[in-house]
Simulated scan of single mutants.
Amino acid sequence: MRFYIGLSAVLAIASWLSACERTPAPPLDQQLYIWQRQWTPAHEAALRDSRADFSTVRVLALQAFPQAGWSRARIDPALLRQDGRPLIAVIRLDGQLKSLDLAQATAQILQVLDDWRGQGLTLAGVEIDHDAGSARLPAYAEFLTHLRPALPPSLPLSITALPAWLDSPQLPALLAAVDSSVLQVHAVSDPRRGLFDADQARRWADAWGRVSDKPFYLALPAYGVALLPDSGGAPGVESEVAIPRRGERRELLADPQALSQLASGLRGKRPEHLAGLIWFRLPLANDRRAWSLTTLRAVARDEPLSSRLDVSFAAQDGLYDIGLANRGNLDSPWPARLTVKARDCVGADALAGYTLQQTPDLLTFTRLRDGRLPAGGQRAVGWARCANIDQGGSHVDP
Rank of each mutant, 00 (worst) to 15 (best):
Y4N: 11
A14R: 13
C20M: 10
E21H: 12
R22Y: 10
Q30A: 05
Q36F: 05
W39S: 08
P66S: 02
P66R: 02
A68G: 09
G84T: 03
R85E: 08
P86A: 07
A89W: 06
V90L: 09
R92G: 05
D94R: 09
L100E: 00
L102A: 03
D114V: 03
R117N: 11
L121P: 11
G125D: 00
V126I: 11
I128M: 01
E142P: 09
E142G: 12
T145I: 02
L147G: 13
A150S: 13
P153Q: 08
P156M: 01
S158T: 15
I159M: 00
W165S: 04
L166F: 09
A177Q: 09
V178Y: 01
S180W: 15
G194H: 03
L195D: 12
A201F: 11
F216G: 04
L220H: 00
G224R: 06
P229T: 02
G233W: 12
P235S: 06
V237F: 04
R246K: 04
R246C: 00
R250L: 14
A254E: 03
Q261M: 12
S264I: 08
L284F: 02
L284M: 08
S292T: 00
L296E: 11
P304Y: 02
L305E: 11
F313K: 09
Q316D: 15
I322R: 01
D344H: 13
L368Y: 09
G371M: 08
N388H: 14
